[in-house]
Amino acid sequence: MSPRNSAIQMTFLLAVVYLLMTGNFEPVNLAFSVIIGIGISSLVRPQHLSIQWRRLPIALAAIAGYLIFLLADLWKSSIQVGRILLDPRLPIKPGIIHIDSGCESELAIALSAHAISITPGELIVEMDHRGQMYAHCLDSSQAEELIAEAQEVRRNLLSKIFE
């Protein structure tokens, strides 16, 4: 598929999503959805989206599961950071630690970084295409434990998605 066709396909999909979200099918809104679709697809690299209709329910379920996992992790990390903030001594030892994810594919690296950024006390500052990640953490004295924990999170996540 040529880049131009991909852009048209993407514009169409974005317009449909916008219309479904606004729930308003008046001509003005239809035109506006197309304008938004064109605007967004001109900003990103045109990419052919191969939609496999048979796998769509599984993919949607995986996305929903990932979001629930993110919500649970966000809750845990907020409680942990909140406890540090409310402590009068403010017990932080910030630092940047190195994590070797050992992942190969771009998607796996991106998902790992995304998930680790929300695990308690960690935030990815820098990463590269070879899977080397650098995480800022609130308590770097337990860096090795944090790395082990992050690897655990990552492995669980990836096994769920690419089973």
């Binding site: 910030p94 630092g95 940047i96 630690i97 190195h98 500052v125 820098e126 650098y134 770097s140 004295s141």
Partner: peptide
């Protein structure tokens, strides 16, 4: 965070910096 590191904003009270 990445942008802040790239323009050289220091890490206060930093214990280690592998990057």
């Amino acid at each position: 965070a990445s942008a802040a590191y790239r323009i050289g904003i220091p890490i206060k009270a930093g214990q280690r910096d592998d990057l």
